[in-house]
């Protein structure tokens, strides 16, 4: 199943490469990876979506991320209430007659037409992965010329925290709990 991790990393050159290289080296498949600035200029935030075979994979990913000196904190927010967003720009083939149809679709998805050319439009849609997938499915028959997605970004709601499974990692104050509780029991 897909796991979503939030990693806080030092904002230094090459850190993205280190993270990407780690996933390749340890044989994990990244579904999406989004990096951006945070409220602190010295820290960047990564949202990493990975397909995990089993629960130990999630544990391994976390622990290995901590091995990178520049990684400050890792949380797995998969099972926590979060706001997740992905943004897509979709260029759709559109004769003037088709524009109304696209407009209607866009309205349903609260998407926006952000560029209009004689034979195409660009639709901008923000939301969860599911929402974007459905929008794409509906636009596909009309003719998608080009598409780009940012990859997911995520934030836990309210005061919820993601799971931090890595025992003793970086003195984050967390320590090994019951195997059941951290989902390793069935390993």
């Amino acid at each position: 199943m897909q796991h979503t991790f939030i990693a806080l990393v030092e904002n230094k050159p090459g850190v993205l490469n280190r993270v990407a290289s780690l996933f390749r080296r340890r044989n994990f498949n990244i579904e999406s990876l989004a990096v951006g600035r945070t409220e602190r200029p010295d820290i960047s935030r990564m949202t990493i979506v990975v397909d995990c075979q089993d629960k130990t994979d999630a544990h391994k990913i976390e622990a290995n991320l901590y091995k990178l000196i520049n990684v400050i904190d890792v949380q797995d927010v998969t099972h926590k209430p979060t706001v997740t967003r992905d943004l897509a720009l979709i260029k759709v083939k559109a004769s003037p007659e088709q524009r109304a149809e696209i407009n209607n679709l866009a309205a349903i998805f609260r998407a926006r037409i952000v560029d209009v050319a004689p034979d195409s439009v660009i639709v901008e849609v923000t939301g969860t992965e599911d929402k974007i997938e459905s929008m794409i499915e509906l636009l596909r028959p009309i003719g998608i010329l080009e598409m780009v997605r940012t990859g997911q970004i995520a934030m836990t709601r309210g005061s919820y925290q993601g799971e931090r499974r890595t025992p003793g990692a970086n003195g984050n104050g967390w320590y090994e709990r019951d195997p059941e509780e951290i989902g390793l029991a069935e390993f």
Partner: peptide, 12 residues
Amino acid sequence: DPSEVHKNVRVD
């Protein structure tokens, strides 16, 4: 090294 725990052998 936390990444060595449960890597090859599940421990109690």
